[in-house]
Design a protein around this nucleic acid. Structure first.
Lengths: 349, 349
DNA sequence: CTGTTAGCGCTTTCAT
DNA sequence: ATGAAAGCGCTAACAG
């Protein structure tokens, strides 16, 4: 028998402590504090309980509750890191929506260690009720194996994987379509798309949208595939695009950081943007307004990605069926200064 | 009595399940699987247990373990968001080090909701064993109140708060000192520091280092204080710096995004960098190499910040005494293209 | 070397 | 309207 802790005691107060002070049973305290419909208590008792709880600063222990309910009220979020603004944005959206729905987030970046271990660790130890995988680095095969074990609680974000039924993606192809249309409207007829590795699902979809729209509009499309998708990849991609003969009059970058790198790459190569070359980014970012020249971009609603993913996984946890969600907000073109009409003398095929 | 689940069963296997298959008691399974020194088992039994565990894919339930041990093996990380690269970097450092030491991270950004609730929620519900607060937005007073309740497990990161004994910071003042010296060496004698709000501890320290070194070296210092510390704040700060009479020949930006904004601001104002104005950033970033001009910067070891914070909080959890840690790695100057010798005709006071 | 027992803090029947 | 008791899955103390 431990004596009920006072305000000054350091041990975390338990239901029993509150019950002792209020002079009732702990089960009643539990019901009252949770507003359990079956927890009718006389207004007076109720009041005593609530006051006692406040007095000692009672907070339910999450582990005990989780053990009892077989629910942790926590979701896992697996990211490759915070390298790209897209991941930051996803994290933000996930966290916000999870919060709204009463869930916490445990974070796993697999900067260090085996990605598969990180993933299975979270889910298999029952640390989380569901898992959002927003990492391109985990192999499809690994992911499928994981989902085979716990299909009801894994959602892949910004990616689709054969065999994994629950996913949320953006309208990547449409973003590329929009980009092509903008450039064609400006008079461009030779466009080069510079993308990241085809091992990334988003890149494949953007690239496809790019290729198809170019074909449909009858303009000359070329494509460069880089191993990375960061500034450096863009910088080098610019050079690769310039090597094409005849050179394109406009380039589309597969990611925002790539577009930034391409701006630098064009400058290094002595090619004026947008005078001699238009540069257009897939994905927008606050930084775009502060670059030279200000970067035109097709914005995608990345924060919605996180929110939708949370809704989907919570639905799965509640027994819902896996779905493939496409965020309904369409991509939006934001024209700034890096795209302009095709230079005179180059406007025919 | 439930029958031992086979591979196909969906219920998460427990110790009891493994024990049943191996034909031993669950406590023995527990000891063997944890390599408990008191868990000697005959090689043969051991083998049977391990195989049984593997067969059903046993993973210890974190909630049960946490309840029993009064340890969750989880740390809380409170960030204001991923707006700034510094926060991403801290998150990365924290996650990596925590991983190494066997801890998970639960993330709280207080984009949404009451920051104080987020914080107390994590700690008070026993969801985490310790808390890293890397947010400038939580008021000092709030933070002190929190720490009064649970002094042994809160560490503030990249910030010091009176009344909160455990903190980890960088050598912010020294970074500013290094910046000033670089510019003075280039011949600059009128330098303007453009900082974020003085409500942020880091800004105060950088500003102090700036002011003191300028005084020591006998150069003319002016200071601009902006309400924000993002691109926009830098953009507007550039104009404010140019309004000084006589105008400075060099500016130091309080954060990396501010420096980016200042580059744009100078360009908009028609001031050539570095021809007419040198721009130097406090904090470095991969982006620096891809700006026009490439941005000179003083790098600070932000990732170490996260690692040190994890080490400190784990030390506190183990009963260690609170300390004020300063990350030992000194700031490093990276000279690129945005700083140069003072323009001719302006090199005297 | 292995089993028994008790209990972490909570929720949920089932009694009263 | 309230209480008693059981049990979530795990580990530690103690027996044997």
């Amino acid at each position: 028998m431990t004596d009920p802790p006072t305000r000054t005691s350091r041990r975390r107060p338990t239901l029993a402590d509150v019950a002792a002070i209020a002079g009732v049973d702990s089960s009643l305290v539990s019901r009252v504090l949770r507003d359990d419909p079956r927890g009718f208590a006389s207004a007076e008792t109720r009041d005593r309980i609530v006051r006692a709880a406040q007095e000692v600063g009672y907070r339910a222990n999450a582990a005990a509750r989780g053990l009892r309910n077989a629910r942790t009220m926590t979701l896992g979020l697996l990211l490759p890191g915070f390298s790209s603004p897209v991941y930051s944005s996803i994290a933000h959206g996930v966290e916000e929506r999870a919060n709204e729905r009463g869930y916490g987030i445990v974070l796993g970046t697999h900067a260090a260690g085996d990605p598969h271990e990180t993933v299975s660790g979270m889910l298999m130890h029952g640390r989380v009720d569901g898992l959002l995988v927003a990492s391109g680095r985990i192999e499809d095969r690994e992911l499928r194996r994981l989902v085979d074990r716990v299909p009801q609680s894994v959602v892949v974000v910004n990616r689709q994987v054969r065999g994994v039924a629950a996913s949320v993606v953006l309208q990547d192809a449409d973003a590329a379509v929009l980009a092509v249309r903008h450039l064609v409207q400006l008079g461009h007829r030779r466009i080069c798309g510079v993308f990241g590795p085809s091992t990334l699902d988003t890149m494949v979809r953007r690239r496809r949208g790019f290729g198809e729209e170019c074909r449909r509009l009858g303009v000359e499309a070329s494509t460069v595939e880089m191993a990375g998708r960061d500034h450096r990849a863009g910088f080098e991609g610019a050079r690769r695009a310039l090597d094409r003969t005849p050179a394109p009059t406009a380039v589309i970058a597969g990611t925002f950081p790539m577009a930034v790198g391409m701006l630098a790459g064009m400058h290094t190569a002595g090619v004026a943007v947008p005078g001699e070359m238009s540069v257009l980014s897939l994905h927008n970012d606050a930084l775009a307004d502060y670059l030279l020249p200000r970067l035109s971009a097709v914005g995608l609603p990345t924060e919605r990605l996180g929110a939708e993913a949370v809704d989907l996984v919570l639905d799965l946890i509640d027994g819902g069926r896996p779905r493939r969600v496409v965020v309904p907000e369409p991509p939006r073109l934001v024209v700034r200064d890096s795209t302009s009409a095709v230079p005179a003398g180059q406007d025919r095929l």
